[in-house]
Simulated scan of single mutants.
Amino acid sequence: MKFAITSKGDSVSNTLMLKMRTYLQDFELEYDEDQPDIVISVGGDGTLLYAFHRYQKRLDKTAFVGVHTGHLGFYADWVPEEVEKLVIAIAKTPYQVVEYPILEVIIRHLNGGKEARYLALNESTVKAVEGSLVMDLEIKGQRFETFRGDGLCISTPSGSTAYNKALGGAILHPSIEAIQVAEMASINNRVFRTIGSPLVLPGHHTCMLKPINHVDFQITVDHLTLLHKDVKSIQYRVAQEKIKFARFRPFPFWKRVRDSFVGDK
């Protein structure tokens, strides 16, 4: 088996990364940063997001597993004290693969400009560079509303516990084939009206955003911030690709939610 390790970059994470690399090579596993079968993320959720984008062209061939060295994360199910146990599991135990849906973002431009395609593990957001965001929102090719406000957040079920939750969106189990649209400070009065509620769209539905005015847009894809001009439309849907997680033991989602947001009093 070929493996690669990504680190948050702090001293604790780097030390663990070197220790795990040495241990796994002692078990005669091959270190390969270009074509790994498994990628170990050492750090937090942000580190795994970085690893996801680095290896997004290998999603059908690569599985991910996370070790968290800071606060409890949703993508990292091992702690530093368990590194030896994880190494033995990787080297000796066939792992279960759990697949979760991700988000496809396609940005099309006016005047026949080249379209851009991105994949997001957590979410994508759209804001106007100046002023309010004004967009027609279409679902399955039918106009649903004209949105006016600070912006929109389109998230995956995996990302529903991140920015989406801060915006009042629902927490979805990451196995659900869906995307969620949440508003950022929508304008609602006697003239302008939006649904005012997050929307959960199934995997076979497409969400299309079409600008009303000619402005530049700041579009995020997970931790990446992009500036797009002359935007004709932004299309969101569940991607054909999925992310694979290597599971060596149960990792209950609702327990993670409880531990992260409720905890013991």
Score class of each variant (00 low, 15 high):
Met1Trp: 03
Ala4Gln: 01
Ala4Ile: 00
Thr6Ser: 09
Gly9Asp: 05
Gly9Val: 04
Asp10Val: 01
Ser13Leu: 02
Ser13Cys: 03
Asn14Val: 05
Asn14Thr: 07
Thr15Tyr: 09
Thr15Pro: 03
Thr15Gln: 13
Leu16Arg: 02
Leu18Pro: 01
Leu18Arg: 07
Gln25Met: 14
Gln25Asp: 09
Gln25Arg: 15
Gln25Phe: 07
Asp26Leu: 08
Tyr31Cys: 05
Asp32Glu: 10
Asp37Gly: 14
Ile40Leu: 13
Ser41Asn: 07
Gly44Asp: 03
Gly46Pro: 04
Leu48Thr: 01
Leu49Phe: 05
Tyr50Arg: 15
His53Pro: 08
His53Ser: 10
Arg54Glu: 13
Gln56Asp: 13
Gln56Phe: 11
Gln56Glu: 15
Lys57Trp: 12
Lys57Ser: 15
Arg58Pro: 05
Lys61Asn: 14
Ala63Cys: 11
Val65Gly: 01
Val65Met: 05
Gly70Trp: 03
Gly70Gln: 05
Leu72Lys: 11
Gly73Leu: 00
Phe74Met: 03
Trp78Leu: 04
Pro80Cys: 09
Pro80Asn: 11
Glu82Ser: 06
Lys85Cys: 06
Ile88Pro: 00
Ala91Cys: 06
Gln96Met: 11
Val97Ala: 10
Val98Tyr: 11
Val98Arg: 15
Glu99His: 07
Tyr100His: 15
Ile102Trp: 02
Ile102Pro: 00
Val105Lys: 01
Val105Ser: 01
Ile106Pro: 00
Ile107Gln: 01
Arg108Asp: 12
His109Cys: 09
His109Phe: 15
Leu110Pro: 02
Glu115Phe: 10
Arg117Ser: 13
Leu119Phe: 03
Glu123Trp: 03
Ser124Arg: 06
Ser124Lys: 07
Val129Phe: 11
Leu133Lys: 04
Asp136Arg: 13
Leu137Thr: 12
Ile139Gly: 04
Lys140Ser: 15
Gly141His: 05
Arg143Lys: 15
Arg143Gln: 13
Phe144Thr: 12
Asp150Pro: 00
Gly151Gln: 03
Leu152Phe: 05
Asn164Ile: 07
Asn164Ala: 14
Ala166Pro: 04
Gly169Trp: 03
Ala170Lys: 06
His173Met: 07
Glu177Gly: 08
Ala178Tyr: 04
Gln180Tyr: 06
Val181Cys: 14
Glu183Asp: 07
Ser186Val: 04
Asn188Met: 09
Asn189Arg: 12
Arg190Gln: 14
Val191Leu: 12
Val191Asp: 07
Thr194Tyr: 03
Pro198Gly: 08
Pro198His: 10
Leu201Ile: 07
Pro202His: 06
His204Gln: 14
Thr206Gly: 00
Met208Leu: 14
Lys210His: 06
Pro211Thr: 08
Ile212Ser: 10
Asp216Ile: 10
Asp216Cys: 11
Phe217Asn: 00
Gln218Thr: 09
Ile219Gly: 01
Thr220Arg: 03
Thr220Cys: 06
Thr220Met: 03
Asp222Gln: 12
Leu224Pro: 05
Thr225Ser: 13
Thr225Asp: 12
Thr225Cys: 11
Leu226Phe: 06
Lys229Leu: 06
Lys232Leu: 11
Ile234Leu: 04
Tyr236Gln: 00
Arg237Val: 01
Ala239Tyr: 01
Gln240Ala: 09
Glu241Met: 07
Lys244His: 11
Arg247Glu: 15
Arg247Ala: 12
Phe251His: 13
Phe251Cys: 08
Phe253Glu: 02
Phe253Ile: 04
Trp254Val: 06
Lys255Pro: 02
Val257Ser: 00
Val262Asp: 12
Asp264Trp: 13
Asp264Val: 13
